[in-house]
């Protein structure tokens, strides 16, 4: 069994201060991930120091804007562009903003919608 994990809920306004705090504490950014729960979107920021994870969760709607932490952690831009392209959540102030061209997908913001493919058969007609 591995160590238990907790995810602390925070507000959207706390995202950047928490990132700054994490950086002061000498933590590295592990990942930013998004999950769609009903109509809400949960975004989880995970930091690590000495193999101990610290996670913060914010809950937003698709129309909401979230601030970028790429000014604190340069590498955050890959995750933030990903969230924008796959979920359609707007992230403001990314240092390298691909403006929706990071992933090119057939369906726009694929993770925010339910997808039914017409041709689901094995046979390739």
């Amino acid at each position: 069994m591995m160590e238990p994990q907790t995810i602390l809920p925070i507000g959207v306004g706390d995202v950047v201060p928490k990132a700054e705090q994490a950086k002061r504490d000498g933590k590295r950014l592990v990942q930013i991930g998004c999950t769609k729960i009903g109509d809400d979107f949960e975004i989880i920021y995970v930091y690590d120091k000495d193999y101990q994870l610290t996670s913060y969760r914010i809950t937003v709607k698709q129309a909401d804007e979230i601030p970028s932490i790429s000014s604190v952690y340069f590498g955050a831009f890959v995750y933030e562009n990903e969230i924008h392209d796959l979920y359609g959540i707007h992230v403001t102030g990314i240092n390298i903003d691909f403006k929706g061209t990071f992933y090119k997908t057939t369906i726009k913001h694929p993770f925010s919608v339910t997808i039914v493919k017409e041709d689901d058969s094995c046979q390739n007609k």
């Binding site: 592990v30 990942q31 991930g33 999950t35 989880i44 995970v46 590498g75 831009f77 890959v78």
Partner: peptide, 26 residues
């Protein structure tokens, strides 16, 4: 990192993979 979230059903709610190459891009 594999993030797994389930709600007691056979199908998971979310599986998210953060792979080493992805974080090695910056």
């Amino acid at each position: 990192i594999h993030y797994i979230k389930g709600n007691g059903k056979k199908n998971l709610l979310r599986h998210r993979v953060r792979t080493p190459t992805f974080t090695n891009i910056p």
